[in-house]
C-alpha cells in the first residue's frame, strides 16, 4: 500500500532561492506597500509588512525581476547575486 501521494505544501523544502542570478532589493523609502510586487511574484514569496514594506523571502526568490519591473514606484532594484 504505497500510492504516489504527497503531503500538501511540502514544496517549501525546495529552497529555490539557489537558482537566483539577480537579487531584488527593496528601497523601503520608496516602497508604498501597494502590494503589486507580492501579487505578481511567481513564487508567492513577497509579503507586505505594514511597518516596513515589501519583504522578500530569499529562500525562494528565483530572481526573475517581475517585482522590480512591475513596481510602480521603482522601489525594487535587481543586482547581480553575490554567492557566498
Amino acid at each position: 500500500m504505497n500510492p504516489p501521494n504527497a503531503k500538501p505544501g511540502t514544496s517549501v523544502e525546495n529552497k529555490t532561492g539557489s537558482w537566483r542570478t539577480y537579487r531584488p532589493t527593496v528601497d523601503f523609502k520608496k516602497c508604498t506597500k501597494c502590494g503589486i510586487c507580492a501579487s505578481f511574484c511567481p513564487e508567492g514569496c513577497i509579503n507586505i509588512d505594514p511597518k516596513t514594506g515589501a519583504i522578500i523571502d530569499y529562500n525562494y526568490c528565483k530572481g526573475c525581476g517581475i517585482c522590480a519591473k512591475e513596481c510602480p514606484s521603482k522601489a525594487i532594484t535587481m543586482s547581480l547575486e553575490v554567492k557566498k
Binding site: C34, N47, D49, I55
Partner: peptide
Amino acid sequence: LGARELGGLEHNYLLAPGHTACA
C-alpha cells in the same frame, strides 16, 4: 490584489513556494 499583509516570511497562499516553475 491578493497580496498578503504579513510581517516576516510567513507563507499562507494555497500554492506554497518551492515549486519548480521557471523563474
